[in-house]
Amino acid sequence: MKKNYSGERLTVAIQLKRQPPKWIYNTLLTIVVFILVIYSFSGTVISADRLNNFWPSLRVMIKGFLNPNLKFLFGLDDASIPYLTLQTLAIAFAGTLIAAIFALPIGFLSARNVTGKASKIGEIILIAIRTFPEIILALILIRIFGIGALTGTLTIGIHSVGMLGKLFAESIENMDRGPIEALDAVGANIWQKIRYGIFPQVLPDFLSITLYRFDINVRSATILGVVSAGGLGTPLIFATREWDWPTLSSILIAIIIMVVSVDIISSKLREKLV
C-alpha cells in the first residue's frame, strides 16, 4: 500500500493539490517579458511625415531595387563591384588564415588537458579578444595601418583569434586520450606529444572550424568597409547615406551571390573533411 509522509493513503485529490505551480511562474514571466519588450520601444518618435509617405517611399525603393546600377555592377575598374567583391573575399580569406595561425598556439595554451592550470591565461586572452567589438578594433587599426583593405584584413585576423582559439581548445579537450598515453609510455616530451598525438587527431576539426569562421568573416568583411577598411562596405555606406537604391541593389546582388556561393563551397569542403 502506498503511503505519503503524513501516513494517509496517497490519492488523486492529494496529488492534484500538489501540482507544482509552474503556470504561475510561466504566466508571470510572460507578462514581465511582454512589458519589457513594450517598454523597450519607448522613446521612439516616428514622424507623421514619414508615415504619410509610406506608400510613395515604398514605391521609390522597390523601383530602385528593380533597377540595379549595372555600370557599377559590371565595371572592371577598382572602384566597381567585381573588384570590390574580390577584395572582400581576399580580406576574409587572408584574415581568417592569419587568425588560424595565431589561434593555434593560443588554442593549445588554453586547452585544459595540455597545459593544466596555465590554460586560464589563454582563456582570459581569448575572452578579451572575443569581446572587443570588431568595428572598434577596425577604427583603432585605421589609425595605425591607414584607410584600406589591409586594416580590414588585420581586424579580421586579430578578432577571429578569439573564437577560433576557443573552438580549437574545445576540440583538443574533447579528443581521445589514448594516443597521448601511448606517447607518454614511449617517453615523448610535450612537443612530440602535440606533433604525433594531438595534431593528427584534431586537424580535420581545426580545418572545419576555420572554414566555418571564413563563412562568418565573409559577412563581417562587408561590414568593415563601413569604416573604410576596404571591400564592398564602403560603397554600401555611401549608398545608404544617399538612399541610392539602384547602387544598393547592385551591392546587395553581389553580397547575396558571394555569401551563398561561399556557403555552398565551404559546406561541400566541410563534408569532405568529416
Binding site: K2, N4, L10, T11, V12, Q15, R18, Q19, P20
Partner: peptide, 12 residues
C-alpha cells in the same frame, strides 16, 4: 491513470 498503474506518487 497513474494511480491505476500504481505510480501516482511519481506524478511530479
Amino acid at each position: 491513470a497513474l494511480d491505476k498503474m500504481g505510480i501516482l506518487e511519481k506524478a511530479f
